[in-house]
């Protein structure tokens, strides 16, 4: 995508074919080709796939908008020093407190990475910030309410998700305290998306987070739609049959699908062939370890951090999900 570079560096000097022009031409081409494109989707399977794709995205949009608005409001209007004052001095105590504090950051995982980074740069102990990083996208009210809505017959699912996610994030915080090394972690030196005023910070953060997370939501919706239509129900049923194996299958699916935590409960609900414990693993692993999140962590905290932290989180999350699922579901 080097064309974007040239467009920005030469914008002041005359007209160039930049991304805006590309988008315009692309949209016009789509409009002209509409009949041909919709003709491609005559087959019932492709039509069903398109319907499922659109419905996942449409269903998730209001949640995503709510999430980014609230998280941007907190990022812009709550001073970061608040967190430093609110946390206990002792690190081993600060970890669970920070984990529980994840309740107040209603955002998806894309939002919690920069927030955790800025917490660290404002002097919060890394172990506590990491517990917050993992818990915030999973246990905030928006996510819990959408989980509750997505599983009308199983209100315990939201409870189990809260418990399992909190336990996992606290364990990971303590593990980092005990085994983590400072040289693995690159603490970000500056906040991102800081405007000239709180209002500007709010707007920039909300817009950015929406565009960023929305793109990944589209990937998740596409993948889910393709799986839904391409994979015969019998194959998934056979995978769903094995108790332990099915947990691993859905945990890995969560890593691959990269669905925002505000929307993933609806996808989990549609995977009705799988046991509730397997779907719990999907909901616990997804907001903590997925492809886009590992990439985000690698960028904000460094690759040496992400290559150790993400696999460890995956293992802990799967084990905790199995235990909590066996206990609560």
């Amino acid at each position: 995508m080097s064309s974007t570079d040239t467009s920005s560096s030469t914008k002041s000097g005359g007209w160039r074919f930049g991304p805006l022009e590309a988008l315009t031409v692309g949209l016009i081409a789509l409009l002209i080709g509409q009949r041909w494109i919709s003709g491609l989707f005559e087959s019932p399977a492709l039509q069903a796939g398109a319907t499922i794709f659109v419905s996942i995205v449409v269903q998730a949009m209001p949640f995503l908008v709510l999430g980014v608005v609230l998280s941007a409001a907190i990022a812009a209007f709550v001073p970061t020093s608040f967190w430093t004052r609110a946390l206990p001095k002792r690190e081993s105590l600060a970890v669970p407190v920070a984990g529980v504090a994840g309740v107040v950051l209603p955002g998806c995982e894309c939002a919690s990475v920069p927030v955790a980074g800025s917490l660290m740069s404002r002097g919060v102990a890394p172990a506590a910030a990491l517990a917050f990083l993992l818990s915030a996208p999973a246990i905030n009210p928006v996510v819990l309410v959408s989980t509750w809505v997505a599983f009308p017959g199983n209100p315990m699912m939201a409870v189990a998700r809260f418990v399992a996610s909190l336990i996992t994030s606290v364990i990971m915080g303590w593990l980092w305290m005990r085994f983590g090394r400072t040289e693995w972690l690159r603490i970000p030196s500056r906040d991102h998306l800081t405007g000239r005023s709180s209002w500007e910070t709010f707007r920039l953060t909300a817009t950015h987070d929406f565009l960023h997370a929305g793109g990944f939501l589209v990937i998740g919706g596409l993948t889910a739609a393709v799986l839904n239509v391409a994979v015969p129900p019998s194959v998934i049923d056979s995978l769903a049959g094995h108790a332990l194996f099915s947990v691993l299958v859905l945990a890995l699916l969560a890593v691959v699908l990269c669905i925002c935590s505000e929307a993933d409960a609806f996808v989990a609900a549609s995977l009705s062939q799988f046991s509730l414990t397997a779907r719990l693993a999907f909901l616990v692993v997804g907001p903590m370890v997925d492809i886009k999140l590992v990439a985000l962590q690698a960028g904000v905290f460094g690759r040496r951090f992400a290559s150790r932290f993400a696999p460890a989180t995956f293992v802990v999350a799967v084990i905790v999900s199995i235990v909590v699922g066996w206990w609560l579901l």
């Binding site: 894309c110 990475v113 920069p114 970000p188 500056r190 991102h192 998306l193 800081t194 405007g195 000239r196 500007e200 920039l204 950015h208 960023h212 886009k292 990439a295 985000l296 962590q297 690698a298 960028g299 904000v300």
Partner: peptide, 10 residues
Amino acid sequence: AVVDVDEHAA
């Protein structure tokens, strides 16, 4: 104001 740090990460 619109420098986007975490995009580089992605």
